[in-house]
Each structure stands twice: as C-alpha cells, then as structure tokens.
C-alpha cells in the first residue's frame, strides 16, 4: 500500500528524518513509537503533505503513485487519512456541511455519484454510533469548542466517513482518559478490514493494548532503529526509551 524508501526530511536546514524505510501492506497495522522529538509527527505530516518540510532525499509510493508530487487534497482523495494530533478549530464551518463537501469531493475524484442530503445524513448517523457521538455534533462548527476527547473521536468519525485505504493516527491517544481511549480504539478496530491499513504513531504503549499492531517500529533521532512484533512495544513500556538510546549509542 505504501512504500517509503530512504526518506530524508529537513525543517529550516535541520535534518529531522534521516533515511526512513517503511513498507505497509493492506490489512496491516504498524505502530511507530519513539521518544519526543524523534521525528514521529514529522513523518505523519510529511505523508499527509504539509508544507514547511523539505524532502531532500528518498521516495514515497502510495497505491502506486508518487506521493511526494501530490497535493494534500489529492493524497486524501487517493485514500490517505491523517488523524491529527491537534485537530484545528474551524469556527463557522459546520460539521455536516464540511463533511458532505469532503466526502463528495472524494467520490467525484473516483467518478462516483455524489450523495444527496438524505443519503448523507443517514450515513453520518450510522457512523456516529461507531464513536458514540451525538447527532448534535453535526450542527456544531468543526472542532470548535470540542473537548480534547471529542476532537479525537471526531477524527475517527471522519475516518469512518471517508473510508480511507491508509489511516495515520498521530498520537491519537494523547490526552485521552481510558474510556475515551477505548471508544477510539473500538472505532478503529471496527473499521479495520483486509483492504485497509493503519499507521499508529504513539509515544506510549497503552493504545497498543487496544489496537494490536502487526509490526512495531522504534523511531529514534530520525531513524527506525528497531522493528519487531508487539513484544517490542511491551519491552519499551518496561524499559523506557533509555534502552533505545543506549543501544543506538553503542551502534
């Protein structure tokens, strides 16, 4: 689904990612873990196409396309979804209008028929249940005045609406209490199919108790220094990142 080769990324002359190699196939869940400042969020944002990052080397192929050349909206339309770490508040833009616009843009892109108002409302109601959200959300402005937990659930709700191939969850667990965490994880698990894939970016192992990854990567100082199965995440939880730091120092 996505193939990242020797990806090097700088911000204002500082190299943040120093040669990332990562391959995710349909049906897989990959977790990317690492201490603060290791480049996790940079990777997530580069994949989504945020400006301010200079890709100095490497390639990213997504569903057979050269991702680097694509505008952020086209990446989204091709089925790449980023659940933001800090979803922005957009006052004045109502959830329902925004989502309808977004979903229909994606459908148009794929030559599909756009939804009419009734169909769309039905679809929204159905997906809201997935994240245990009230219908009132739809008449509110996007993330405006949402609590931290509501914002994260809203990201998962939008993921459900847009039905992406690849979803990147950027620290979706941060700031969530255990109940909210379970709702978010349940939503993700229900959306999981053989055709789609997930990259779960997180600092802590706890989310991975609920979303069980196939592969765990440890990102440190801009490089993937370890890859393994979910045992690796357990190991990190026990020993902390100092272990990674020591190990990479000795290499």
């Amino acid at each position: 689904m996505i193939e990242i080769k020797n990806l090097k990324v700088s911000v204002e002359g500082n190299e943040i990612l120093k040669g990332i190699n990562l391959s995710v196939k349909a049906g897989e869940i990959h977790a990317i873990m690492g201490p603060n400042g290791s480049g996790k969020s940079t990777l997530a944002n580069v994949l989504a196409g945020r400006e301010d990052y200079d890709i100095t080397e490497g390639s990213i192929t997504f569903m057979g396309n050269d991702l680097i050349e694509m505008a952020p909206e086209d990446r989204a339309r091709e089925g790449l979804f980023l659940a933001f770490q800090y979803p922005v508040e957009i006052p004045g833009v109502r959830m329902a209008n925004f989502l309808k616009h977004a979903v229909n843009e994606v459908r148009k892109y794929h030559g599909q028929k756009t939804y009419d108002a009734r169909e769309f409302l039905q679809k929204m109601r159905e997906k809201l249940k997935l994240v245990e959200m009230d219908e009132k959300f739809l008449s509110r402005s996007v993330n405006d005045g949402f609590s931290g937990g509501e914002k994260k659930r809203n990201e998962i709700f939008q993921m459900a609406m847009l039905e992406p191939h690849l979803s990147i969850l950027d620290e979706t667990d941060s700031g969530l209490d255990i109940d909210a965490l379970k709702i978010v994880a349940n939503g993700v698990n229900k959306l999981r199919t053989k055709e789609n894939a997930f990259i779960v970016v997180t600092h802590y192992q706890r989310l991975l108790n609920y979303i069980v990854p196939d592969v765990v990567h440890v990102l440190y100082q801009g490089k993937i220094v370890e890859s393994g199965d979910k045992e690796l995440a357990m190991h990190l939880e026990e020993h902390g990142y100092d272990w990674v730091k020591e190990e990479s120092a000795t290499v």
């Binding site: 989504a48 196409g49 945020r50 400006e51 505008a71 952020p72 909206e73 990446r75 989204a76 339309r77 979804f81 980023l82 933001f84 979803p87 922005v88 957009i90 925004f98 989502l99 616009h101 977004a102 979903v103 843009e105 994606v106 892109y109 996007v142 939008q158 847009l162």
Partner: peptide, 10 residues
C-alpha cells in the same frame, strides 16, 4: 491544511 487533508481543494 486540515480541510485539504479531508479531500477539499486548496
């Protein structure tokens, strides 16, 4: 950027 990420053109 948020809107773009949801498939809406710039």
């Amino acid at each position: 950027f948020y809107l773009q990420q949801r498939g809406i053109s710039k």
